[in-house]
Amino acid sequence: MTSRRVPLLPLLSAVLLPAAVAMVFFYAPTERTMGVVQKIFYFHLSLAAVAFLSFFVACVAGVLYLVRGKRRWDAWGAAGVEVGVVFTTLVLITGSLWGRPIWNTWWTWDPRLTTSLILWFIYTACLILRSAVESETRRATYAAVMAVAGFVDVPIVFLSARLFRSIHPTVIRSDSVGLEPSMIATLVVCMAAMLVFWAGLVRLRYGLHLQEAELGDLTRRLGG
């Protein structure tokens, strides 16, 4: 609960996000082969990066919770998982909307897409697990274990997605997109804006978790 009164992150993201959108549409040039669809890419990639970051935060918070047993680490873990799932959902939606006009398919088993999808499943299962346990310490421990167990799966998920594809060859290589300097600048601004927004969001969710826990404490004290 440090420096609660200064909403620095929300204010900063209120400035940065519109600026980033403006850059995408007015500053960055339209890509030659993909045309206007490529404008999805800037935020798609930013969302994916911060989604992955949230899962990483959840894993670290999980380890710290298991070692220290403090409620605030559970709060960070809860925030990381939930925000990560929201962002991954958006990544999958925008990925689909990008893939349809470019590759003529809503879905393809590209390694990155596959990894995102599997992560989405793992961490949504984590959310379901949270809702299924009543005791607070038990819920926190189980969620922490699941967050760690989910994150150590990532290397295998990515590797298997690559091997899975290698026998069904596809010609999709999203990294073959040649980026001009102005595009890279736009991408950096988008990433930064999304990062600030993400940090604010995680912080908000973290505060909410602590408040809900406090509510639980108060109810218990009143109930006897």
């Binding site: 599997i118 499943f121 793992i122 949504t124 299962a125 379901i128 697990l129 699941m146 167990a149 989910g150 799966d153 295998i156 998920v157 590797l159 298997s160 997605a161 091997l163 899975f164």
Partner: peptide
């Protein structure tokens, strides 16, 4: 629900 997402890569391989 918890296990299948984790073993998805295992099954794929």
């Amino acid at each position: 629900i918890l296990l299948f997402p984790l073993i998805l890569p295992l099954v794929a391989l």
